[in-house]
Nucleic acid binder design. Structure first.
Lengths: 187, 187
DNA sequence: CGCCGAGTTGAACTGAATCAAGAAACGTGG
DNA sequence: CCACGTTTCTTGATTCAGTTCAACTCGGCG
């Protein structure tokens, strides 16, 4: 639970009263490896903080799984688009290992937004932050070749390279496993 | 000015006091056709509401202009990334026609955030909204071919097709002018 | 009338996808 | 702890969509 408060502290300083209200809304859940936290077609009405485990966020297009993101302990996991628009998700969220999460749902969060200005601000800062994350990913897809995207992972020493099977990394990079294998083979 | 209030009303209902404070921060500016509202290397410390005119948002990579977005009357225009991170912009913002805008700067906006909870909320809702916009564009680049992206423009009856020269539309779609010409030729 | 930028068309090139086959790694049960 | 079967990764040959380079057309505007 302290990990979550630490996470928030990057953004705003919550008072004890605010934090207590927040904590009261979080409910702990476990998800077994390969379990689905969210299925296509469901509305995502929660945001979850990952205490343990990891998830992949993927969609199925033309019969093929395409991975959009990975989430690890200390991250939030949600289908933010479905959460914000209240429309059905076109993505699945699957646990890659047994996981423990703290969930808060949309209604509870909205009440917290109404009650506490600082939490409203936290919501803004997190939204702004997520904007930056997708904007960077969009840049990577618009301006970089698959090879360059892979090299970025290497340069940043990304977790993905050590913790995620190569065919999933390929999917995340937007290429076929064969292609990633060849990129790695050269040089 | 009323157009701006109408725009905000999609998100929240501002009281007269809040709106007056907001208005007091906006300053009117004009930008001539081909004028730059923002240059590469500058920090973008403003958000501007477009009263008249249109802008293109582009970056130069490997000696080539690549257009990321177009903005029209009734839209906000800013380099949101630079605005949020306070880092230099890697994009230019250029007026496509003579334009009139209402500008507010970062410091003023932060004061408004501090002073009015509803404006803080407005900030959150706008950030969430921009998240959805880039997320959709990312989807288009990850899952659609250039042809499909072009067909989306046609299907949505996009302004771009009537108001923007074809070579700029091509750039926005992430392809060469020759390729867009060929896409249009088939069928 | 002639120029110039925008748009079109053609031919050759390139990087990733596809299809196919094989090698390596993994884990599960005997 | 080994053997087997499945999954993951690699390698090769071919195809394909978009790029590149180049030439040419069109339309507006001086």
């Amino acid at each position: 639970m302290e990990a979550l408060r630490t996470y928030f502290n990057q953004f705003v300083q919550l008072s004890d009263a605010e934090w207590d209200d927040f904590k009261a809304c979080m409910s702990k859940e476990t998800v077994p490896k390969k379990g689905l936290l969210l299925e296509e077609g469901e509305k995502c009405n929660f945001i979850a903080f990952i205490q343990e485990g990891a998830f992949r966020f993927y969609t199925v297009k033309k019969g093929e799984e395409s991975i959009t993101a990975f989430f690890f302990a200390g991250d939030f996991v949600t289908n933010y688009r479905s959460f914000l628009t209240n429309k059905p998700s076109n993505h699945y969220i699957e646990a890659l290992q047994d996981a423990v999460i703290l969930k808060i749902n949309l209604q509870q969060l909205q009440q917290l937004y109404n009650k506490h200005k600082t939490i409203e601000r936290l919501g803004r800062l997190i939204a702004e932050n997520l904007y930056l994350v997708v904007a960077n990913r969009l840049d990577a897809f618009m301006f970089e070749t698959p090879t360059e995207r892979y090299e970025q992972l290497v340069k940043r020493g990304s977790k993905l390279l050590s913790e995620i099977p190569q065919y999933m990394v390929a999917s995340y990079l937007g290429i076929k496993p064969e292609t990633l294998s060849r990129i790695r083979a050269r040089k």
